[in-house]
């Protein structure tokens, strides 16, 4: 169980013959061999990557293998096209790892998910991926640090998420699904989308939310959590970041009075949601809640 992906998910890796695509497709297969069914690189159809068949188009891959999810490793200039191709081929979930996609391309590909009333989903872009522990991994997260259990994890970051997951695992707190929603200003799946899914997931008893400066997804999440039955523990990074500077992630920027860590912390506190001041506190608070 868990959310968005499980052991029945079938993934096609777009850009599988590139350095990153190949490396991570094989790691995803190590996590669960049944989940990675195909790769796509235009012009390289008929080849294989250590046994994973490569197709010219996503549609062929879907027809031949029954793939229902896609993972995008193609370069930024071609990424939006790759997402559109996935949706056109009937894929329902696209996990976009690529960083640096032009913002207007992201708006187009993200809005494509919901045309004609279809409830399709983009995770990312600039996402480290998603893992449902013990079942499936799509993306670049190091599978070995995860441990199955009752805590859902959502985050805008990659390594900081691993840091928190490593800590939780070492304290004996396992995870249900962990999602990196992505560090870009526009993302397909927000904290609120994930919280809604976790609220309905029988395997998830509590959630850790790791936010950062920029945008207002944390403030929206704070409002949403008011109506949740499951507890959520939060952490915000970038509390000491100067305004107007992009802190690595394209989306991590305080612009004017918008997107400050202070506003996010306040929103959570107002909604009665615990905010950890240090990474270690996340585990301490979670232990008490479970």
């Amino acid at each position: 169980m868990g959310i968005f992906i499980d052991r029945r998910t079938k993934v096609v890796v777009q850009g599988i013959t590139g350095r990153e695509g190949r490396f991570h497709a094989l790691r995803m297969r190590d996590y669960n061999p049944d989940v990675v069914v195909a790769g796509v690189t235009p012009g390289k159809g008929g080849q294989d990557v250590e046994g994973i068949p490569v197709f010219n188009t996503v549609l062929e891959a879907v027809k031949e293998t029954g793939a229902n999810a896609s993972c995008i490793f193609v370069p930024a200039w071609a990424a939006a096209d790759a997402v559109m191709e996935s949706f056109a081929a009937g894929i329902e979930l696209v996990v976009c790892i690529t960083e640096g996609i032009p913002t207007l391309d992201v708006i187009n590909m993200v809005s494509q998910a919901n045309v004609d009333g279809l409830a399709r989903r983009v995770i990312g872009p600039n996402s480290p991926g998603i893992i449902t522990c013990g079942e499936a991994s799509i993306g670049i997260m190091p599978g070995q640090i995860f441990k199955p259990g009752p805590v859902g994890v959502i985050s805008r970051s990659g390594t900081l998420t691993y840091e928190v997951v490593g800590l939780l695992s070492s304290c004996g707190i396992g995870q249900s699904t962990c999602i990196g929603v992505g560090g870009d200003p526009i993302i397909g799946t927000t904290f609120v989308d994930c919280l809604g899914a976790f609220e309905k997931d029988d395997n998830t008893k509590a959630v850790v939310l790791i936010g950062e400066i920029g945008g207002s997804d944390e403030e929206d999440a704070a409002e949403f959590i008011r109506n949740m039955t499951k507890p959520v523990v939060t952490f915000i990074s970038g509390r000491t970041a100067p305004p107007g500077k992009r802190m690595g992630h394209a989306g991590a920027i305080v612009s004017g009075s918008m997107g400050t860590a202070e506003s996010k912390v306040k929103a959570f506190q107002k909604a009665g949601v615990p905010v950890a001041n240090t990474i270690n506190q996340i585990a301490d608070i979670m232990k008490e809640l479970l």
């Binding site: 985050s155 805008r156 970051s157 990659g158 390594t159 900081l160 998420t161 840091e163 560090g183 790791i210 950062e212 400066i213 990074s237 970038g238 509390r239 000491t240 970041a241 500077k245 802190m247 690595g248 992630h249 991590a252 001041n277 240090t278 990474i279």
Partner: peptide, 24 residues
């Protein structure tokens, strides 16, 4: 550090201990 979120959190941790980072 490696990863934007981790570096931001590291800078915050330095501040929490009473220090000031020179850079991200």
């Amino acid at each position: 550090g490696n990863g934007a979120g981790l570096v931001m959190a590291t800078i915050d941790a330095i501040k929490a201990e009473g220090g000031e980072a020179a850079n991200f």
